[in-house]
Simulated assay, not measured.
Amino acid sequence: MTYTPTTDTAQHTDLDAPLQLLTPEGERRHDARLEPWIADLDAEALQGLYRDMAIARRVDAEGVALQRQGQLGLWAPAQGQEAIQIASARACRPDDFLFPSYRELGVLLVRGAAPADLVLSWRGEVLSTYDPHELHAAPPQIIIGAQALHAVGYAMGVQRDGGDQVAVAYFGDGATSQGDVNEAMVFGSSFGAPVVFVCSNNQWAISEPVTVQSKFPIAGRAPGFGIPSLRVDGNDVLACTAAMRWALDHARRGEGPAFLEAVTYRMGPHTTSDDPTRYRDAAELEKWRARDPLLRLEAHLREIDAFDDAFRADVDADALSYTTQMRAAAVGATTRPPLALLDSVYAEPHSGIDEEREHFAAYLAGFADEETR
């Protein structure tokens, strides 16, 4: 089940089409490589995947709204990437440790993040993240690709402890050009670490298209490090589930790292400070809108008589309950005075902090002067 890159750039799009089990129209396809890994997924399990994806999308929309209303400093939208996030996180064991980037909203939801956990850090509040040991997930990483190194280090620790947990590193297509990701793959492969690299290829690294990142499919890079890989349709939750289960099994059996490239699309901006209309064609957006991960699973569930108005209403109620709590946490947060930022840097008095406090106070006072003009 390893990826074999082609050498003919004129043909690679056809020959390296992502593996798929569910078409954009919701029709079930068969693939002998993936089928064995999802044999147990019945209608109830598929409904659970849909529920998680639908809640993730509603939470994402609420996060954008809160930022636009001035309640959050920033938000990194995840619309369109729900399938790979939900599928991969659900495939993991509770004690596997996950290392997300700033966009893995669905991963954190599956791990049990509380509504406040998803908003307070984007407000810059003190002690605003979750307990990593409780969720078995590291805090979201802002530095592009750094979490890949953290995941490999954790996986090497698991090796030395004699455990069978797997570490999972999440990153985007742009991160594959960072030294950290490539160095992580070198270490992971050299030491046979139980780590899975999940690349969500959402086609854009801020304003730079993936065609600038790589002339060939990203999954083709991993075998160069001695790491088997799969390239799957990242909007197909069944294919993503199967691929992740294969990767986890490979790593857990002591065979070393595995790499997944999930071909998906970022429907919204890179963050709420970005304007994608300046660099992205509207026709491209509409093409990917037709490949929506939620719509295709809904179509499949309707085909097998597992989706009706009652089910939709139940999902909507769960989503509303979560987002209501999320909004309350953001709106009701009490922000400490700016100077309190320096209160807990050192346990003992420190002259350097006193100097910083003086400079910071003068900086803040400058804004007060502007307001009186």
Rank of each mutant, 00 (worst) to 15 (best):
A169H: 11
S177M: 06
W37V: 11
A262H: 13
I218Y: 10
D316S: 05
S190D: 04
D308Y: 05
A362H: 10
F225N: 09
E284D: 14
R51E: 15
Q203H: 13
L294F: 01
A87E: 03
S190K: 05
Y3R: 12
S121N: 13
F171A: 09
C240H: 06
R111M: 05
F216Q: 14
E27L: 13
A114E: 14
S128N: 07
T277W: 04
G192M: 08
A317F: 01
H136Q: 15
L260D: 11
A148G: 10
T324I: 00
E25S: 13
P257V: 05
G63Y: 06
R123G: 05
G70A: 10
G106S: 05
M326P: 00
R289Y: 01
V152F: 11
F307M: 09
R231F: 05
D305N: 12
I353G: 05
N182G: 12
D131S: 14
T23F: 05
E255W: 08
Q147C: 12
R289P: 02
M185R: 04
D309Q: 08
V107T: 15
R123C: 04
F216P: 03
A175I: 09
P293N: 12
Q11I: 06
E25H: 07
S321N: 09
R160Y: 15
S344E: 15
I55L: 14
Q159L: 11
V198H: 00
W37P: 10
R278K: 13
F187W: 14
L109H: 03
V263T: 10
V126D: 13
V168T: 06
V345L: 15
A361I: 00
V237G: 02
C199T: 05
D60F: 05
Y322H: 04
A282T: 03
Q67A: 06
L149K: 07
A247E: 01
A43F: 01
R93E: 14
G48D: 15
R289F: 01
R160V: 08
G80N: 09
P223D: 13
S351Y: 09
Y265W: 12
W75V: 03
G124W: 04
T2V: 11
P209C: 00
A258R: 11
D275Q: 09
G157Q: 08
I38S: 03
V210S: 12
S229A: 15
D274M: 00
S189N: 01
S351P: 09
A368V: 11
V181S: 01
R266H: 02
N235D: 10
L342M: 03
A258G: 15
A317Q: 09
D292T: 02
A61E: 10
Q67Y: 01
G254Y: 12
G254W: 13
